[in-house]
């Protein structure tokens, strides 16, 4: 059951990411990114991170992707033209580099497979209260600093997106 769920949602993740890469219209890319994020939320649940799964759905696929689709529709973004796209340096150095990266990382991870251990359904469930205990005791200062960060981000977004009046 666990293995089946893992492979279904891992395949969904990779398919969504590849669809993001292959689609030309930004709205299709945004929708496939939502598929990736929701399947990642299920994978977080499989890893026992229930709070993060909920936060992933609410923050990422809820808030951030709504913002993305909103901007795409606001700017009326059309299909990108493939003809003169893709700079030569990117395809010459980028793709072999990307393939080398994924091969290297997969080799390292799979050779350390035994040491990394395995995971089963429900073998370790991190409750929200356990997270809160660490967050509000050990990491209280970073948590408060993020509130300042979000405040600055709100002001910056409003200031940047405002129409110039002159």
């Amino acid at each position: 059951m666990y293995v089946v769920l893992f492979f279904i949602f891992a395949a969904l993740c990779v398919a969504g990411a590849l669809n993001l890469l292959l689609q030309r219209h930004p709205i299709n890319s945004a929708l496939s990114l939502i598929v990736v994020m929701v399947s990642l939320a299920v994978l977080y649940l499989l890893l026992g991170a229930e709070f993060l799964a909920a936060a992933q759905v609410i923050v990422y696929s809820g808030a951030i992707m709504v913002l993305f689709t909103f901007v795409i529709m606001l700017l009326n973004a059309g299909e990108e033209d493939r003809a003169k796209s893709t700079s030569r340096v990117a395809s010459a150095a980028g793709f072999p580099g990307v393939v080398a990266l994924v091969c290297l990382l997969s080799y390292v991870y799979l050779s350390e497979k035994v040491h990394l251990g395995t995971t089963a359904l429900g073998d370790q469930l991190v409750s929200t209260s356990a997270l809160a205990r660490v967050l509000f005791r050990d990491l209280l200062l970073p948590f408060e600093v993020t509130s300042v960060l979000i405040l600055i981000a709100i002001l910056g977004a409003v200031a940047l997106a405002r129409k110039e009046q002159n």
Binding site: A10, S29, L43, G94, V98, V102, S106, K113, L116, T119
Partner: peptide, 27 residues
Amino acid sequence: MTVPIAYYLVLSAILFSIGVGAFLVKR
């Protein structure tokens, strides 16, 4: 029935690489 943690890490590497590829290709 267990899944090795390594599979999750490989999936993460694949997703990251697709992200890098899309970053390079998309205009």
